[in-house]
Design a protein around this nucleic acid. Structure first.
Lengths: 203, 203, 203, 203
DNA sequence: TATGAATGAGGATTCATTCAT
DNA sequence: AATGAATGAATCCTCATTCAT
């Protein structure tokens, strides 16, 4: 009987929830939400499928909690950056760096988000995904436009296209990024920023 | 004993197959393979679920045919480019342009590929996905390295990282691209190339 | 296009029916009625599943026709034997010999009969199976009882048990008998009769 | 990473399994394996079709377990007989008696075996059926040949034919035998042996 | 006579979920 | 907190059958 790290006398225990959610997130990320069975999660966590329902209402509510937690932390980080009111280029740099840090800490959640976002956003329960996305777009697009206006970014590029380009570039990394690998999040951010800002061609 | 066994899966009209595959691809792309029911495809195509099995062995074989067809055409295009034996920069430009053309023609297939690639590649039936991917990596990475060697591309960037960056950037476009939209594939390619090669920052 | 042995200008053609029924019987015997698909029969016969319905109403009606034809011929043979009004031992000998001849000519039908008899006999359409069986029992049991009464057969054996014993012994042979094999039906009958009548122990 | 993977198919209570298998065997025997629906078994057992899958992997695995259990016990009985190293006649007597005891205890399994043996033996999963059958043939045929050599059995009969005759005679009994009927297995064995060894004709 | 395409009912199986213990 | 057993709805797939050509 592993996992007896905690005080025996604990109740519904949020720690156990977090453990189980971590397992669930990992499996969701690896197989996709639909392809993941509750039993698989339970197997991986070392209990029976039915037992998960002591901790969670449903498979969907696990997904919900995973995504909501991630987005909360993401926006906390973003808001800190935005509150600093830097110039456009510095803002982009800070946002990208922050994003890679989030990928480092919530890799599974980011991967799930990437995969399921579109479909989920249509469900009432997950409306916050759509809201988050539109706020996201607003922040990034706004920063880029400000940059163009201030002649920090090139004016000859389609801003929406550029926005999508930068956005995708950052988040897709979650599909291959492995925490603890060769590059730290900050190192990856630096390389990405260098490419995006200055291009890969020799001048 | 007269017994003119026909090749099981090739009898029914290939035109009808193509129609049905187009429908299936669209639904797979929109909902994800797992979340798509055979009945949904049939509904969309205007026949009953069971009737699909006159044309295809299984839901999986539809997916297979969709992806294989796409990859075939993709590599046909790529090979034409590679046979031209251009310089590194021109090769990258041609490959990117070709890629956006493929996205234009196989948007659904590309979206499915992006979503399901990882999990599918482990199935024996879809081994060709892994093979394609490794050939893909070989081609792109090789071109980038050649470019660095010839001082056409910057030497201070991690080439693997750059490879992933460019690769993802291109293909993720399938998730938002809509054929017949504001930008032609060539126009999008031009913008992407400009960003990737020269960066978005004003020099 | 094989099988053009007949006059081109023929109509619904009973010869074609017979050919197809022979194929069907073979497959039913090999796989069992339920496990046999109409398509399998059609494949084996070199046409498409739907085309069988030009010749037959249903899968069941093929089965019906196969069994009815067999039983008709069987009873024709049996009736000839019975009309000869031989003594009990000679009757048994003649019936057994006749049975092996039927197995020789209708091996597939006999095998099907053995397998499906019980379940089919309950269906209204196949009531004749039950009737045939009861007439069968009447004939054999009667002959055995007559033999016991005439002191030709042993009196210390349970007659019903003996009946089942002899009956099974004969018909189960259909499951391994291959026409054109080492033994002619008459040779097999001779051996079987020798065993059943005189036993295998040395006296 | 705590992950106490349990052996997939052995967790649920073996008693319940046995109950359910008994029901399944009865239905398989009565209707044939193919003609039996999982729902029918479930109905008969008083639960829903899907619930059977908590206990068994598939309909086929139920069949597998039924047959394997039967054959295990059969060979246990046979091996006891063979270990006694009796003379040929006594061996045959003991094997026949043992066989009728097995029919008494596993009537349904024997009936299923008779019906499905041939087709199943070709499936990899049921290879043990073919193996059992060949060992069976080896034992019986060997005993008969020994009997002939020792002049206990007649030399003028084809041994293979005799083998099939005896084998079928015994096992087909499962198709009409009803446990708890007029005759005990031992009584039936005695009658069968008397017929097979000494014949039904008065000497 | 036969084909090609489809129907529609049913069958095995999966799986999220429930609940008494 | 967790188990064991079950539910019931949904899913993929099969197959006998139909029918216009």
């Amino acid at each position: 009987m592993p996992n007896t790290k905690k005080t025996q006398a604990s109740a519904p225990s949020p720690e156990r929830r977090r453990e189980l959610l971590a397992v669930a997130a990992e499996v969701f990320a690896a197989q996709g939400y639909d392809a993941t069975t509750v039993r698989r999660i339970a197997d991986e966590a070392g209990l029976l499928a039915g037992s998960l329902y002591y901790h969670f209402d449903s498979k969907e509510s696990m997904l919900d909690e995973i995504l909501a937690t991630f987005l909360d932390e993401l926006w906390q980080g973003y808001d800190t950056v935005l509150d600093a009111a830097l110039g456009p280029r510095e803002t982009i740099e800070a946002l990208v760096t922050e994003s890679f840090r989030e990928i480092d800490r919530h890799r599974a959640a980011v991967a799930i988000y990437q995969r399921e976002n579109r479909r989920l956003a249509e469900l009432p329960r997950f409306r916050y995904l759509a809201e988050s996305q539109s706020r996201f777009e607003h922040v990034w697009l706004g920063t880029l436009e400000r940059g163009v206006a201030e002649r920090v970014f090139r004016a000859d590029l389609d801003v929406r296209l550029t926005y999508r380009f930068v956005r995708d570039t950052v988040w897709v990394a979650a599909s291959w990024y492995r925490p603890g690998g060769r590059h730290s999040p900050e190192e990856i951010a630096r390389q990405y920023l260098s490419m995006v800002l200055d291009g890969i061609a020799v001048r």
